[in-house]
Amino acid sequence: MLRFISKRISAAVFVLVGASFLAYAMMLLAPGDASREIAVARYGGQGMVDQATIEWIIKKEKLDRPLYEQYGRWLKHALCLDFGNSLVEEIPVRELIVSRFDRTLDLALAAILVALVISIPIGILSGLRRGSWMDSMGVTIAVTGVSMPNYWLGLVLIVVFCVKLHWLPSFGRGDWHHLILPAVTLGTALTAYTTRILRSAVIDTIRSEHIMALYARGLDSPMVLGAHVLKNALIPVVTVVGLEFGMILEGAVITETVFAWPGLGELLVSAVGNRDYPLIQGMVVFTAVIFVGINMMVDIICRYLDPRIK
């Protein structure tokens, strides 16, 4: 187990170094000249920037050095959690990310809660009663949820619950009422996904020989169901909830834009819109760290729950 954990951690570190390079190299694809971009972002319009300023920036930011040297210096700072200052707001990227993180976390946890509450019963029932109406309902929910673009779902929910029914607030952040619609929006795709995985896990498990043997020994069904089927079928759900963090980070970008929820996603959209490169790099690396870290933990937990997993 220890060997597995250390191997897993070193793999994660390798992946993160690679991801940080991707995040850094992305900026090279920007059209135009980096020094001019920085100058324009800092000092306003194109007309305000003269050649001397640009040369001064090139010197100061060491943009004339080779790529690996620039990346190395950036990585060294990034390891100390220093991603530089935002070009637009002139405050450290780290502070911006930290100030927005808990808001996205609220949203993510609420969305996972919504997804689990809906998908666990539906997934188990449609797996157990395969071919029944419950099953077709479960499958329909799963496919529809995957196909529904969440930016559209968010808008439709606003139309129904805010405009027509006046039940819930539409935009912004406040008490828990504000959390409901974004959480449902974000949770729908996760619900669909979890339902689907759980259903096939239950189907696989009840078909397996050890469950048949238990039935053959005459154990009653609720007992077999609770102690053996569910225990095995829930392992993939752990995996899925881990994977869902990636989907949540993606979904948060869109959901937060629709509901004007001031979280990480919204920050990223405005950073990309403003071409605020240090902020973009910091956020891309931050999402990669969260995503890879959670996946690593899920791997270790799964291995612990089911030693057969390689």
Partner: peptide, 24 residues
């Protein structure tokens, strides 16, 4: 496969949006 892992570590829409935004 390690390169695949590295690319997978960036959530798809986030990476695509950032890239599309940067490239114009």
């Amino acid at each position: 496969m390690r390169i695949v892992d590295i690319f997978l570590s960036l959530p798809e829409i986030i990476a695509a949006m950032t890239l599309a935004g940067i490239m114009g």
